[in-house]
């Protein structure tokens, strides 16, 4: 679907994206994770043609994206802030604009979504709360039916029921009209079941890319007496450690071999799973 080759973006002295190679096949829901400033928004903006690549390439089905209407008309990026209109614009007018400019936009679906989020065509953008604005962004994004639809922090400021509606509508429409989604989020535990694959961006580079379900088995927490734990984890990829008195917990990355598990049992060490969010925190430098 969309690929990047050696993609770099710089803002003055700061490098936002650093020689990024990415290949996202079509028809999946990708989760884009990363700490603040990791480059998520820059990546999404560049993929959508909102920003010119500093160097390197962004191709949609083999065609350059930037300033290419054949590509951009098949991409929709909804960002956490702006790009839909002014405060005085009515939601109905914004949706009419979307219909006029985007071939794939489905106005009937947009109306149904507005209804589900409790919004009306007559409201103005400026009168909406933070969460309602996010909901309206979701309406525009889903109703675009763009083959590549991306949301940057789609659910910012939305309450739990709103986020649940988003999840339901996303999955239902994804099944009915299969397409590619990229969702960036900080709500890892809540949103990750929606993803097929997770991409973790760290300091402008792709740190990890893995099926969500595999990621759930990637980390192991080893707990026990400090000296025994230290011996056990020698040679393993250690992500982080914490101590409580004589007891130590070390998070290691990667599946353990069966003989390792037996050795752990033999020494009375506990082996526990690591949640995706904890793994994310450890992988991106801990706290």
């Amino acid at each position: 679907m969309i690929t990047t080759t050696d993609l770099c973006v710089r803002y003055g002295e700061t490098t936002a994206l650093d020689a990024l190679d990415l290949d996202l096949p079509a028809g999946r829901i990708y989760g884009l994770l990363g700490r603040n400033g990791a480059g998520k928004t820059t990546l999404l903006s560049t993929l959508a043609g909102f920003r010119k690549p500093g160097s390197g390439r962004v191709l949609l089905d083999g065609e350059p994206v930037f300033e290419n209407p054949r590509a951009t008309s098949r991409i929709c990026l909804i960002r956490e802030e702006g790009g839909l209109g002014d405060g005085i614009d009515r939601l109905g007018d914004i949706l009419d604009m979307a219909r006029a400019l985007r071939k794939t936009h489905d106005q009937g679906y947009a109306a149904a979504l507005l209804d589900r989020f409790g919004l009306s065509r007559r409201q103005t953008l400026g009168s909406l709360s933070r969460g309602q604005r996010s909901a309206f962004g979701i309406v525009v994004g889903l109703a675009s039916r763009a083959p590549l639809t991306m949301f940057d922090e789609a659910h910012l400021g939305m309450d739990a029921p709103g986020r649940r509606i988003f999840a339901d509508e996303l999955l239902a429409d994804y099944v009915a009209h299969p397409r590619t989604f990229v969702l960036s989020t900080h709500l890892i535990e809540e949103q990750s079941p929606l993803f097929e694959q997770v991409l973790i961006l760290h300091r402008g580079r792709l740190l990890l890319r893995e099926d969500v379900d595999d990621l759930r088995t990637r980390g192991v927490a080893v707990t026990g007496p400090a000296t025994l734990v230290d011996d056990f984890v020698t040679g393993l990829t250690v992500l982080g450690e914490r101590s409580l008195g004589p007891t130590k917990e070390v998070t290691v990355y990667g599946a353990l071999a069966e003989q390792d598990r037996q050795a752990a049992r033999l020494h009375g060490l506990q082996l526990g799973p690591v949640a995706v969010q904890d793994l994310f925190i450890h992988l991106t430098g801990g706290v």
């Binding site: 290419n68 790009g83 839909l84 914004i94 525009v140």
Partner: peptide, 10 residues
């Protein structure tokens, strides 16, 4: 900026 959001180009 709104025109770009709806998939058109500069």
């Amino acid at each position: 900026s709104t025109v770009l959001t709806h998939g058109r180009t500069r």
